[in-house]
Design a protein around this nucleic acid. Structure first.
Lengths: 195, 195
DNA sequence: CCAGCAATCTATACACCGTTAAGATACGCA
DNA sequence: TGCGTATCTTAACGGTGTATAGATTGCTGG
C-alpha cells in the first residue's frame, strides 16, 4: 500500500471524496469525471478501473448523501423529535446545508441510477424514518398515504426553497407549512382506527 | 418572408418547437443546441442569432411549459375544480403527461434561468391559481403557509412519482395524499378568521 | 431603382466532456 | 522468483457549448 506513484492505494475512496467536494460547491453539473480525476491527481481514465460509468460514481456519492440524511434524521429522532414538523425541520436543514448533494440525490436517471442497490437501500432507510413520524403504528404499508404525503411535502418544500421559487418569507417559516399536514395525518389515523 | 435558403423566416419559433419536441421525448439532457439546429435543418451557430445562450432557449420553452400548466389549471377551474385535491390532480396530470418538460421547468439554474422575466411571470401565474385553492380570501400574502404547502406537496408528489421513488401503489391514488392537506388548510382558515 | 446597412446564417475553430483501446507498471500469490 | 492481474497512463473518437469571421439576404433611405 504505497502512495508513491503508479498505484494510488485507495483511489476509489479518494474519488468519492473529491466528487463530494465538487458537488457541494457548484452542484451536480460542476462535477465531471475529468475534474474529479484532476482533483485527485490521476489520469482521466483512471476512475474507470473503479466505476463502470460516471453514473456509478454519482450513484455512490448520492447513496452516501442518503446515508448522511438518514443519520441526521436518526439523530433528530434520538434528540426527541417525533412528529413530522420537527423531523421535517431536520430534513430541510440537511437539504439546506447540502444543496448540491441533495439535488444529485433526487436527480434524473441520466445522472444517477435509481436501481443501484446501495443507493436504493440508503433511500429506503431514510424514508422509513420519516414514514414513522406520519404513519399510525399497525397501519404501515403501501396503502398508507401519510408517509407519502410527508415525504412529498418535505421534498417539495426543500426543492422549492432551494431553487428560490418560493414567495418571499415563506422559506423562513417552514414549520408553519409542515404543521398544516398534521391534522390530516391525525384524521387518517382515527379513520384507520375506526376501520 | 421567403423560406428559401439562407433566411429561414421564422427560426426562433422553429427552434422553440424543435426543442419542445426533443424535451418531450428524452428529457432535458437529450436536447442539445446542435441537435435542435439539426432538427430545424440549420447550422449549429444559427440559434445564437435568436438566443444568447442555451439557457435562454431552455428558459423560453420552460416558460411555455408554465403557460401550458397555467392553462391546464384554468381549464380545471372552469370545469368546477375548486379545492386543492381536484386542482392538484390536474396539476399531477400535467406533470405526468409532460415529464420531460416538467423536469426542465424546475431544473437547476444551469439549465434554466429563474430570473428570466417571461419564465418568472409564467411561473407566478400558474402558482396563483393553485394558491387560490388553498388560501383564505383576504388572507393572501407571503405569510400564508397554505399556498406554499399546496405547491410543495403537489410538486414533491409529482417529482417523486415521476422518478419512481414512491412506494408501490402510492402513485395510483394521489387524491388520498392530497386530501391530507385539506384539514390543515381549513384549520388555518379558522385561525385566520379568529385572529 | 439601387446602394448600403443591419440582421441573419454558415464555416471553422477551441476547449471541454464521457468513453474506449492499447500499453506500461506494480502488487500479490504460486 | 516469476507470472497473472489489477491498476494506471497515454492517445484517440465523437459529442457538446460557444466565439469569431465571413457570406448572404431583407430592408430602408436616397
Amino acid at each position: 500500500m504505497s502512495n508513491d506513484a503508479y498505484h494510488h492505494g485507495n483511489l476509489r475512496s479518494a474519488l468519492i471524496e473529491a466528487a463530494l467536494r465538487l458537488v457541494e460547491r457548484g452542484g451536480p453539473p460542476s462535477v465531471s469525471l475529468r475534474a474529479v480525476a484532476r482533483e485527485v491527481g490521476v489520469s482521466q481514465a483512471a476512475p474507470y478501473a473503479h466505476f463502470r460509468d460516471k453514473r456509478a460514481l454519482m450513484s455512490a456519492i448520492a447513496a452516501l448523501g442518503f446515508e448522511r440524511l438518514r443519520d441526521r434524521l436518526r439523530e433528530a429522532e434520538r434528540a426527541g423529535c417525533e412528529n413530522l414538523t420537527e423531523l421535517g425541520k431536520a430534513y430541510l436543514a440537511f437539504a439546506h446545508d447540502n444543496p448540491g448533494l441533495y439535488g444529485l440525490m433526487f436527480g434524473p436517471e441520466t445522472e444517477v441510477d435509481p436501481a443501484d442497490p446501495v443507493l436504493a437501500q440508503a433511500g429506503r432507510e431514510a424514508f422509513a424514518i420519516l414514514a414513522r413520524s406520519s404513519a399510525h403504528p399497525g397501519d404501515e404499508g403501501p396503502g398508507d398515504p401519510g408517509p407519502v404525503a410527508a415525504w412529498a411535502l418535505v421534498h417539495g418544500l426543500a426543492l422549492l426553497s432551494m431553487s428560490g421559487r418560493l414567495p418571499v418569507g415563506a422559506g423562513e417559516a417552514p414549520d408553519r407549512v409542515l404543521k398544516l399536514l398534521q391534522p390530516g395525518i391525525d384524521a387518517h389515523r382515527g379513520e384507520a382506527d375506526a376501520g
